[in-house]
Structures are given as structure tokens and as C-alpha cells.
């Protein structure tokens, strides 16, 4: 088993999401949180998924692992991870083994992602035993390596309890847990949201560095266009549980096609320059009524709406190499 670690495979793994639907069951009926998403996550790249609160990006992340918490439920679709299979149909035990071993996940609330009553080191061992790692000594060594690389005092951290670590330290420990079993696909769900600016920058730096060293496939979920622009190779914009636009980061930033993406980019505040250059996006995210309606989800807030936008929903179509958008304004729809 020790050899298993040494012979790391450097083949990055991609993820194909097909027609994924997740809905939340409420007394008022099912509310779709992810609605028919089709997305290929390129192997070896950092894919940034961006959207407002309630856009379904975190639900999408949980659905990638097939761990959507109740009352959420995956209705249909498939999530095929290279070398593993469809996460939504493989048996429970294989799914559990894929978690942690092949798919690493860093939490939005990584602050509290550890058992408060056990030392970090003991929890690393729990993780190893759960995945039948025979050489636990080597596992601890790898954990120390990772922690050291992230600028932490590894010995001290492994002997600590969660409450003895600061927010930034906990987030790094969360990243260590996602990587210590050598996962090839890493999903980071708002990894820096709860951190101050300096910790944020250093955590992002770590993500970039480890991604490159290990040839990972990284999915970075964020509401912060700045974070995504800084780190991601590709950007996917989510709105109301559906994909609005995707493309390479430079393309999307330089020529945003969807009016929502354009709004997001205008809304980024800059440190240099007057603050009022940042234009807030008017209106609110779609409510459940809008999600059920026929028209474009963004129609209510769109500055460029057409009569057709209120009647039918634009399909998500390719408009070039790796470039997709769902908008009637963009050529290719008429």
C-alpha cells in the first residue's frame, strides 16, 4: 500500500456533468437549485464557478460528490469522473471510497469541518483507517509535508484541537485533509469567504501552487469575481441554478457575452480608482416563482431584455471554442 502513494499517477482527471438536476423539497413544492446543468470540467485546469448566493453553485459542488444534504435531492443526470464512473449511480461503498481518496473537498465552512473533540492528527489517522491506508506513518508524514508547505508548524498543528487554531490555519488544515490521500480532483467551495484579506491571499497562493505541483483538476467555487479571475483557467457563470456563460477566463473577462456576466464584472470594486465606478447589479436573484416561469431567468434584471425573453428561456449554446452562453442577444440564437 505504501507503494501506492509513491507511484502517483500524473494523469489529471476530468469530470463530465450531464443534465444534472437537483431540487430542494419544501412545503411549497420542489424548488430547483440546479436545473439541467451540462458541464465538462477540463482535466488539469482550474475551473472557477461563479454566481450569487442562491445561484446553486454550492449545491452543484455537493452534487459532484453526490452528498447533497437534505432536503436537497438529485433528480436526474450523471456526474462521470474519469477513472471512477458515475458518482450518482455507483454503489454506496465505492462512493465513500471515492470521497477523500479521489475527490477532495474543501468546505465553505472549513472553519468547523473538524471534530472538535479530537486532535487533528487523530483525525488524519481516522481518515487513513477509513480508506484502508496500511502505512499510517507515511500518511502522517505526508500530512506534515502538506502542512509545512502551507507554512504551518506541522507538529504543533497535528497535536492541536480545532479550537486552538485560527481561521486561516483551519482552512489550510481543511485543504490538507482534501489532499492528504492524493485526490486528483479537488473541489473548493468558497475556500476564502470566511477569511481576512491576507489569509485569503495566502490560501489562494497555496491552492495555485499545489494545483500546479500535483497536476490536479481543481474546481473553485466563489461569489468573488476577483478571486476567480486571479486563479481560474476557465470560468463558468451560474445564475438561478442554470449556466449562463462559460469560457476561458481571459475571454470571459475581456468580452463577457451574457448581460449578467457584464453586470458582475462592472460590479467588481477596484482599489485604485473611484469607488463609484463599481456598479451594483440592480434587482434580486430570481425567486421560486421566477424559477418556475417560462422566460429567461435574468429577464427581470436585464438591461437589454427583448420581448422574447419573457416568453421562453434561451438555450445554452456553443458560440466558439469552449465558449457557451444562454442569451437571445447573442448571435446564434435567431
Amino acid at each position: 500500500m505504501a507503494a501506492e502513494f509513491e507511484a502517483r499517477d500524473f494523469h489529471a482527471r476530468g469530470v463530465q456533468i450531464r443534465n444534472l438536476r437537483v431540487s430542494y423539497q419544501t412545503p411549497q413544492g420542489d424548488i430547483p437549485a440546479v436545473n439541467g446543468v451540462n458541464l465538462s470540467i477540463a482535466p488539469g485546469k482550474i475551473t472557477g464557478i461563479i454566481g450569487e448566493s442562491g445561484s446553486g453553485k454550492s449545491t452543484l459542488a455537493m452534487a459532484l460528490m453526490n452528498t447533497v444534504p437534505r432536503p436537497g435531492r438529485i433528480i436526474s443526470g450523471s456526474v462521470v469522473v474519469d477513472g471512477i464512473g458515475d458518482m450518482l449511480t455507483i454503489d454506496k461503498e465505492s462512493r465513500r471510497r471515492a470521497h477523500g481518496r479521489h475527490l477532495g473537498f474543501v468546505f465553505q465552512a472549513s472553519q468547523n469541518s473538524l471534530n472538535p473533540l479530537r486532535r487533528i492528527g487523530a483525525q488524519v489517522l481516522d481518515l487513513g483507517r477509513s480508506h484502508n491506508v496500511k502505512d499510517l506513518r507515511a500518511l502522517i508524514k505526508r500530512a506534515k509535508e502538506l502542512l509545512g508547505k502551507m507554512g504551518l508548524n506541522a507538529d504543533r498543528v497535528l497535536l492541536s484541537y480545532q479550537h486552538e487554531l485560527s481561521g486561516g490555519m483551519r482552512q489550510r488544515v481543511g485543504i490538507m485533509f482534501a489532499l492528504v490521500l492524493d485526490a486528483r480532483v479537488v473541489i473548493l467551495d468558497e475556500p476564502t469567504t470566511a477569511l481576512d484579506m491576507l489569509s485569503q491571499a495566502s490560501v489562494l497562493q497555496i491552492v495555485r501552487q499545489i494545483h500546479q505541483e500535483r497536476h490536479l483538476t481543481t474546481v473553485l467555487i466563489s461569489h468573488d469575481m476577483g478571486v476567480v479571475a486571479d486563479l481560474a483557467d476557465n470560468v463558468v457563470v451560474m445564475y438561478g441554478g442554470e449556466l449562463a456563460e462559460q469560457g476561458s477566463t481571459e475571454e470571459v473577462l475581456a468580452h463577457p457575452l451574457h448581460p449578467y456576466t457584464q453586470g458582475l464584472i462592472k460590479a467588481i470594486p477596484r482599489i485604485s480608482g473611484p469607488l463609484d465606478q463599481a456598479v451594483a447589479l440592480p434587482g434580486l436573484p430570481p425567486d421560486s416563482a421566477a424559477l418556475m416561469a417560462h422566460g429567461c431567468l435574468f429577464a427581470g434584471r436585464c438591461p437589454k431584455r427583448l420581448p422574447v425573453c419573457g416568453e421562453s428561456r434561451p438555450t445554452y449554446e456553443s458560440v466558439g471554442q469552449g465558449r457557451y452562453v444562454a442569451c437571445f442577444r447573442v448571435a446564434g440564437h435567431d
Binding site: 452528498t67 465513500r96 470521497h99 468546505f107 472549513s110 471534530n115 477509513s130 481543511g174
Partner: peptide, 25 residues
């Protein structure tokens, strides 16, 4: 409902260990 239980599921922690975590807390 605590975050660390969801986190241990996402890390593929064995069910028996998860139950131990839950009961202890």
C-alpha cells in the same frame, strides 16, 4: 446538522467512525 459531520462524509470517513464522532459530541 454540524458542519463537521457533513465534512467527514465528504472525506469518506467510515460510517462506524462517523457514528462515534456523533455520539461523542
Amino acid at each position: 446538522g454540524d458542519d463537521f459531520i457533513l465534512a467527514s462524509e465528504v472525506r469518506g470517513i467510515k460510517m462506524s467512525t462517523q457514528v462515534k464522532y456523533i455520539a461523542h459530541n
